[in-house]
Design a binder for these strands. Structure first.
Lengths: 178, 178
DNA sequence: ATAGTTTCTTGACGTTCGTCAAGAATATTG
DNA sequence: CAATATTCTTGACGAACGTCAAGAAACTAT
């Protein structure tokens, strides 16, 4: 889809960032001025409401990584991006991306595909949250996202599903004892 | 942002569709092959789960109108698009849009802006759903979307907020009697 | 105006959830 | 291996929600 020249120009702009478990890759109130892709490691995207963590997303290798809302709108992040393990990610600054979009129409189109793809992910998550019960959401996770269950603490998954840690523990008990 | 020529080409592709209250503009299991913009009227986007309606969105004049998930992914719609009043909307077929994207890079870029904008809307809605209580969500609606309260039946708003009609009735009682 | 339809409210009751607290299980570190 | 920290489970209890059913209120249409 892209020519060699276009790929080269894009690759030139990506920079590898290493991180340690617990590192904050984006703090609240900062404006997210980059997008990235996970190289190695696990990352979570969450906010804090009344002292409670609300996890919006987990990211694994090859996943898109950004506070895309803050990135697009230029508003301060309400969320943290935090490393759940050691690892690294490829980073592209907003400045460079805008320049690539201006200089190369095909990269601009790639940006459209990216936005469309990210729309699909979040729209599907919204739909599931509206129509499924917590138990159904957990079962979906078992079928579609089992690596998450193995590599992320359960209380974070609970938050991702929109329930308390205790409730998820009881959901699991319900499921696995019948 | 677009030249006269580009605007003209786009306008050529839009077609006005009239509808009556209760009309189904997109049925479940159909593939959404258009995007549109509301000209006149009110429209809702909803699905049915276990006999219950789950409203995902309401659209007013100038709002973007499509099952964008079905449109982008080419999968069958799980939702209905239904007219809540008489009205009309401007419609652009997928075929024409793809052609416009191919022929005019600036329209392609406009498509990126559109996808980005729609991402922001759904991402914010997801965030609110994860972090706010039903009562908080209703209060947000009062402040940010009051025309919705005046022009849409309350039981549909309840569904949009993710609660039963009775619960919203009780939330309103809680709020307005103290 | 009146009859019919739709929408909203209220009460009763059972279920699920959140919170707090304690302890068990698991993982990490020295 | 022992000590510590983290995560998970369980119980008890109260709050919020869903459902069913009945009636009130608002809206439509003739």
């Amino acid at each position: 889809m892209l020519s060699d020249e276009e790929w080269f120009q894009m690759q030139q702009c990506f920079e590898l960032f290493k991180f340690k478990k617990g590192d904050i890759l984006l703090d609240t109130n900062a404006i997210c001025n980059f997008i990235g892709f996970v190289d190695i490691g696990i990352i979570r995207f969450f906010e804090i409401k009344d002292g409670n963590e609300k996890v919006t997303a987990f990211w694994f290798p090859d996943d898109f990584l950004s506070n895309y809302r803050s990135f697009l709108s230029g508003t301060k992040s309400t969320h943290y991006i935090e490393a759940l393990s050691d690892g690294s990610y490829w980073r592209l600054s907003k400045e460079d991306l805008w320049r690539l979009f201006d200089d190369y129409p095909k990269i601009d189109r790639l940006g459209r595909k990216m936005a469309e793809y990210l729309y699909l992910i979040v729209a599907e998550r919204l739909d599931n949250l509206l129509k499924q019960s917590p138990e159904e959401r957990y079962k979906s996770l078992i079928n579609n996202n089992s690596r998450l269950l193995q590599q992320v603490p359960q209380y974070m998954i609970a938050s991702y599903l929109g329930v308390s840690a205790e409730t998820l523990s009881r959901i699991r008990k319900r499921i696995y004892t019948k």
